[in-house]
Amino acid sequence: MSEPKKVHVGEVLPPRGISAFDGFAALTQIVDAVQDCVKVHAVESTKQAHLAAYEATEVARIKAAESVLKQFFEQSFEERRSNFTELFDRLDAALDRGDQQAVSTVLTGIVEIARTSPLANMGDLGQIRAALDDPDHVWEF
């Protein structure tokens, strides 16, 4: 058995007095708001594209500088390792011979190499930055 249908009782409201001018004004506001949104979106998209391009450029520059710096350190520390190996071999030989003058000279060389940093020989970091910024700079090792 089904339940009896309910009847809704109420009052039907007459249409409000909205003129065609009010409707057109509302439509104009919507169109203006959408146009503003489109303009803002275009401007912000352009800004994002510029930032993405800037980011890509800077990341590429950082990676290029990293590559150069890695090569510099590899070469510099290879030279230092080679120098230390040679100096310690000479120190051992001088000690074996009992040559105090040679021992003193070799120890002075070891201390001098140990005292200097590979970066100290690079000079002013501002000049390095300028060289990194210069696409025509030739790096010599």
Score class of each variant (00 low, 15 high):
Met1Pro: 02
Ser2Pro: 11
Lys5Trp: 10
Gly10Ile: 04
Leu13Ile: 06
Pro14Asp: 12
Pro15Val: 04
Arg16Lys: 07
Arg16Asp: 12
Gly17Leu: 05
Ile18Val: 13
Asp22Glu: 15
Phe24His: 06
Leu27Tyr: 08
Gln29Glu: 13
Ile30Asp: 08
Val31Lys: 06
Ala33Arg: 11
Asp36Arg: 13
Val38Gly: 00
Lys39Ile: 06
Val40Ile: 07
Val43Phe: 04
Val43Trp: 12
Glu44Ile: 11
Glu44Tyr: 08
Glu44Met: 14
Thr46Asn: 05
Lys47Ala: 00
Gln48Asp: 02
Ala49Asp: 14
Leu51Asn: 00
Tyr54Asp: 15
Tyr54Trp: 06
Ala56Phe: 05
Ala56Met: 13
Thr57Pro: 01
Val59Lys: 07
Ala60Trp: 09
Arg61Trp: 06
Arg61Thr: 14
Lys63Thr: 10
Ala64Met: 13
Ser67Gln: 13
Ser67Lys: 01
Ser67Cys: 07
Lys70Asp: 10
Gln71Asp: 12
Glu74Leu: 09
Glu74Arg: 02
Gln75Trp: 03
Phe77Arg: 12
Glu79Pro: 02
Arg80Asp: 04
Arg81Thr: 11
Ser82Phe: 05
Asn83Gln: 11
Asn83Asp: 07
Asn83Ser: 05
Phe84Leu: 12
Thr85Leu: 02
Glu86Pro: 00
Glu86Tyr: 08
Glu86Arg: 14
Asp89Tyr: 00
Leu91Pro: 03
Leu91Glu: 05
Asp96Cys: 06
Gly98Cys: 02
Thr105Asn: 06
Leu107Thr: 01
Ile110Asn: 00
Val111Tyr: 12
Met122Asp: 08
Asp124Ile: 09
Ile128Leu: 13
Arg129Gln: 14
Asp134Asn: 15
Pro135Asp: 02
Pro135Ala: 09
Asp136Arg: 10
Val138Phe: 01
